[in-house]
Structure formats: structure tokens, C-alpha cells
Design a binder for these strands. Sequence first.
RNA 1: GCCAAGAUAGCGAAGUGGUCAAACGCACCUCUCUGUAAAAGAGGAGCCGUAAGGCUUCGGGGGUUCGAAUCCCUCUCUUGGCA
Length: 318
Amino acid sequence: MKKLLIICGPTATGKTGLGLKLAKRFNGEIISVDSRQIYQGMDIATGKDIKNGKWTNDHWELEGIPIWLLDIILPNQEFSVAYYTDLAWKAIRDIWDREKLPILVGGTGFYIKAVLENIPSQGIPPNWLLRKKLEKKSVKALFGELIKFDSCRAKQMNVSDRQNKRRLIRAIEIAKWLLKNPLPEKQKLPTAETIFIGLKTSLEKLYQIIDQRIEEHLKMGAKKEVKELLKKGFSWELPSMSAMGYQEWQPFLEGKSEIQEVLARWKFNEHAYARRQMTWFRKNKKINWFDISCKGWENKVENKIIIWYNKNKDAKKN
RNA sequence: GCCAAGAUAGCGAAGUGGUCAAACGCACCUCUCUGUAAAAGAGGAGCCGUAAGGCUUCGGGGGUUCGAAUCCCUCUCUUGGCA
């Protein structure tokens, strides 16, 4: 069976570094799973580790290791999990064809899930007109509407999601689509032998690392990067510009706040993000967790992978 | 040294006799997750307890009152104004 390695965990835990190391050791290539690093021109604040890399044709190469799905679109282009999954599978297949090990590296949990599990509504496209219309309604009205079209789905939604406009709208969008179209055919995903490696540490420690990294990103010219994006005509309303390290600059650049506030907000947002990532990943019981503040964690990871990596070979021999 | 204003939970800031363990914002913590996911949304939060409930809070101390963050006295500190 083909193998697929996944490295996940909250931001700033050194996933890329580990990915590179393992790629060298196990003849692998990296596929980035990051919903913001897909954008061209958003390098510093998104933490794209490509300073010493070089762009070749359609992908980055760092220390001789190809990294896929970075810089694939412009900040004003439409994107979604669905696009991502298609691209990711294309990359995975290519890597397999080259008889190498694909390594998914990233912190966007939803993307990882979509790649591996096949989300039922994938294939039902957005209906922007409908969305715009529904946007004006209250959550209550939207929920009422959803009951009309798909009471079953409505009942499934929990308290949180029933208050969530965006999700209600998508649910209605799906329900309406299904009135006229059949459920999209399930993409048959190739079966792969996967292993999940999760990197984590205490929140306290994580906040320290995050803060440090943000200071570095500031020195590297995060502000300039934002200005350049604006100069190119990318506006604050774009989903891409809601990324951390970008949106925080808006009040500052409009003269409404000090740089200290920008930094504080940026840090707080990343802390909250890291927490959210953890609550997402915690649910995935397949993840083998490693605490990066424990000495020797990298060797432990490597040992774990060696066993997993060689399983196949032994089977062949027998 | 005098006068004035103030001192409220981690920070900012409401409340000015009972419905206040104390609004709201931020930080913090937990959670949700079927095409925006670094998005969007729900909840928690003094202490002890799974809970019911109990115990201790509004600068310190002392009073008034059935009852005080809220009224009075005093002390300490902060900030403005005058010397």
C-alpha cells in the first residue's frame, strides 16, 4: 500500500523543519497544508519558510526538497477546501509516481481532514447570488429557511452552528442544490497507509515561541509586505487579507492605532489560533503526539517513522 | 502644605444602599466544524464542589444600617490645580 505521512499541530511548533528532515531521510517531498501560504506575496507574516529556497517551475525547493502547494494563487483569487483537496491529491499521486513519500505538513486541520476523509458536500459549488441574498437575513430566519428545505440537516446542527450565519447559508445552499441535482459522486480516494505525527507543547511555551516569531517577522519587514499587497490593489475585505499579521495593520495604516497595539493584537490572535488548532487536532485520535520541549523528541519521531516506513518492505519480502 | 478628583476582578471600565460574585471590552480557558477554516460561531470564568450548594471579595482599618462596592470617619496611595 502507498504511504502517506502527515505532520500536523499548532502554529510555530517546527513542522516544516521536521518535514524537511524526514523528507531527506525517507526520500520524501512536502505538500504544504496551509490555507494562507497558498497566496503569492504573503510570505513573511504567514511564516513561509522559503528564505533560502528557490522557485522552480511550479513549486519551491528547500534544501533540495520540493515543497508543493505554496504560492499557488493570488490573494484576490477564490479558493476553498475543495480546490485544495483536488490539488493535494494531484500532488500526492505525482509524488507516488516518482516513487517517493508524500509528506503533508501543515496546521489547517480542516484541509487535512478533507484530503483524507472526503467531505460529502464536496462538489456542490458556491452560489454567490444566493449567498448575497441570504446574508441580509437574521440567523433565526436562516434557520427557519433551512428547516423548510432540509429539516433533517437543520436538526443535526448544534447550538453553535445554529447561530452561525455562514454555516447556515452554506447548508441552505446545499439543500437548494440537492433539489435539482443529485448528490455529487463520492470521489474514490486511493487508500493509503497513513501515519499522523503531531507536534505540540504547553500553551505557555507555545505563546513564547509565537511571540518570538512575530517579533522576527516584524524585523523581516511584515509591515512593508502588507503595504505592498495594498499597493497592488488587494483590499482588506479579501479573505486572504483576514490572515494574521495582515488584518492587524489596518487600524495602524489608517492612523488609528500605535504599532504596539498592532503587535499585541497580532500575538493575541495567534495565541487564540493555536488554541483553536489544538481543539481541532485533539479530536483526531490517530495523531501520535510529540512534545517539542522534551529533549530528543526528533529521534523519537524518527524511530516511530522507521518502523512504519519499513512495514511495507517486510511484507513484500514475506 | 492646601484644595479637588479618584482607588472595583489579570488590565481597561460600569455600578453609587438590597435583584452584585459584580455589566461591558480586552487578555485568558473550553468547545463547534459537510467549498471563506489563519474563516465563522457557541460557551466559561473569585475560591471549594461533578452538581446542588457553601465560603471569601470592590485600596487598609473602623462605624451607620435588617442589609454597603455604594453612606460616615480615618489611614495609605494615585492624578490634576494652588502654593
